[in-house]
């Protein structure tokens, strides 16, 4: 498998395009890199819809929060969630957090863990930097591509 840097912004743009056009798959090729974004018609997206519609809090506050979150995920220093799941800011409920705002971090350091169905996935720093903002609370549900943290 060829290795290349994943362009998160591009994937998000393609995902948005998928939604707008109601297609299930888009493939994009440029400079020897090919990215295919597909959505499963029976996937999570669909199963989430009825919940949002019947949820009590579905309202403008939530829509506003969603807009802010998607703006954050476009931030160049955003660390985004690699999967749908539950985010943990510490290794155990009583442990100190992996990182705090203002911490200097090193490439490869664990920033957050995202769990889905007892599969624990540590989200690692891709480069050195400083934690500018932490956007999730311990135990928050997170979506694929959602910004978890801003690193500068």
């Amino acid at each position: 498998m060829a290795k290349f840097d994943i362009d998160g912004g591009l994937i998000r743009k393609l995902s948005k395009l998928l939604e707008e056009t109601d297609l299930t798959e888009i493939e994009f090729e440029s400079e020897g890199q090919r990215i295919r974004v597909a959505r499963n018609s029976g996937g999570y997206r669909e199963s989430y819809i009825p919940v949002a519609e019947t949820g009590k809090q579905a309202g403008t506050a939530e829509e506003q929060a969603e807009k802010t979150a998607s703006a954050k995920s476009d931030h160049p220093g955003a660390i985004t969630s690699p999967m749908v799941g539950t985010a943990y800011v510490a290794s155990e409920p009583e442990s100190p957090p992996f990182v705090k705002v203002g911490d200097k971090i090193r490439e490869g350091q664990t920033l957050i863990i995202v769990e889905a169905m007892k599969t624990m996935n540590p989200v690692l720093a891709l480069r050195d930097g400083t934690v500018k903002e932490i956007l999730v609370e311990n135990g928050d549900p997170v979506e694929f591509g959602e910004a978890l943290m801003i690193i500068e």
Binding site: S47, P50, V51, A116, P141
Partner: peptide, 17 residues
């Protein structure tokens, strides 16, 4: 759900994934 997440019906139309 299709990904394996648990769907819990809390009643009153409130379902959690």
């Amino acid at each position: 759900d299709p990904s394996g997440a648990l769907i819990l019906d809390l009643g009153g139309g409130d379902k959690r994934i």
